[in-house]
Amino acid sequence: MTKTALITGITGQDGYYLSHLLLKHGYRVVGLVSPHRQTNLAKLGDLANKVEIYTVDLRDSTAILNAVEQLRPQEIYNLAAPSFVPDSWKDPLGTLDLITGTATRLLDAVRQVGLSTRFYQASSSEMFGDVFCSPQDEETPCRPKNPYAAAKLHAHWTMVHHRQRYGLFACSGILYNHESPLRPQQFVTRKVSLAAASIKLGLADKLEMGSLDAKRDWGFAGDYVKAMWLMLQVDEPEEYVIGTGKLHSVRELVSIAFECVGLNWQNHVVINPNLLRTDEHFQLVANPTKAKKNLGWEGQISFEKLLEQMVQTDIERLQNGKIAEVSSKQLLVE
């Protein structure tokens, strides 16, 4: 029997890579997309004709219930969230409703319909916030530092409560930063890769940055969605920290990206104090031991290889005048 997987947030970076993985495994993939997000379907690129789209207002509990009852999925991947963390300060309540509200409505729908659907909740390392210790694992206390992180933590515990009270197969991946050529340009990795490509081609000369000392645990999005899928294939639903276990500074990020095009970053990078984040992290780094042991999961694409692919993809896009377009050949890092 062909399995049906529902994905919220299908038009985002993770939605693309997850859809590709599930289609490769023979799934019927259905994206739950709000009416006002229809224009984002173009982001699916070559997958647009391979997945199904079910238009539903994610704020409407009845509509969500009807969708789950009609589609009766074997798996649900709840990836719905604002893509850019700093934007959550502009609309804390909307962020809470999109993240926690969507998770709650989906979980309640599965319970009310009486399905044995396996549910994945996209949690985030942002939940750990102002950490006492590094690296972090599944038992590390959470002290979120922004509305996005607080909403993710609320959704995380909502998922746990549904599992404990109603016996649902519900789990979460606490994912650290994961990147790809699909990252929007406001993300620092893509900002840097696009700048390096633009400067190499003579289309720009300078790159403005905030703190070069900020550090992240960066991996490849295509590796991380495999961890999501693996969590729904095991016997018991649990939480898993997913990351590389390696910290890299923004300075390293800039240096490696510019090295990919034979440039010295110090000749082009300008520090702009207005770009500094007050909720910046320096010690968020994963301890993925549990995922390695229970799921057999480990990231395959190195930080250096990922940046090389992102920079090269941006060069090709700029040369072709198609900076906003995507193709599976460019995106699926080998």
Rank of each mutant, 00 (worst) to 15 (best):
M1K: 11
T4V: 12
I7S: 03
I7F: 03
G9W: 00
T11I: 07
Q13Y: 03
S19P: 12
L21V: 04
L21W: 06
L23I: 02
H25L: 12
R28G: 02
V30N: 00
S34K: 07
R37Q: 14
R37I: 00
Q38Y: 00
T39D: 13
L47Y: 03
I53C: 03
R59V: 05
D60G: 04
L65T: 06
E69L: 09
E69D: 15
L71W: 02
L71N: 03
R72A: 13
E75C: 05
E75K: 09
Y77E: 04
N78K: 08
L79C: 04
P82A: 11
V85G: 01
P86V: 06
W89A: 07
T95F: 01
T100V: 06
D108A: 15
A109T: 12
V110P: 05
V110L: 05
Q112D: 14
Q112A: 14
G114S: 08
T117A: 08
A122Y: 07
S123R: 01
S124K: 01
S125C: 15
F128L: 12
G129I: 07
D130A: 15
V131C: 02
V131W: 00
S134P: 02
D137K: 01
D137R: 01
K145Y: 01
L153K: 04
H154L: 15
W157T: 12
W157V: 10
T158G: 13
V160A: 11
H161F: 10
C171Q: 13
S172A: 15
S172V: 06
G173A: 14
L175C: 10
E179Y: 11
S180Y: 08
S180I: 09
R183D: 15
R183G: 07
Q185D: 14
F187R: 14
V188T: 14
T189F: 11
V192I: 14
L194S: 12
A195I: 08
A195R: 08
A197S: 11
S198K: 15
L203G: 02
L207F: 07
M209S: 06
M209W: 02
G210V: 06
S211V: 06
L212N: 06
A214H: 10
A214S: 14
D217N: 09
G222N: 09
A227M: 08
M228H: 12
M228S: 09
D235T: 13
I242N: 03
G243S: 10
G245N: 09
K246V: 15
V254K: 01
S255L: 04
G262Y: 05
L263T: 03
L275Y: 01
H281A: 13
F282V: 13
L284N: 04
A286N: 09
P288M: 08
P288V: 06
T289I: 08
K292M: 12
N294P: 00
G299L: 05
Q300H: 12
F303G: 07
I315A: 06
L318K: 10
I323T: 14
A324C: 08
Q330W: 09
L331P: 00
L332P: 02
L332Q: 11
E334V: 10
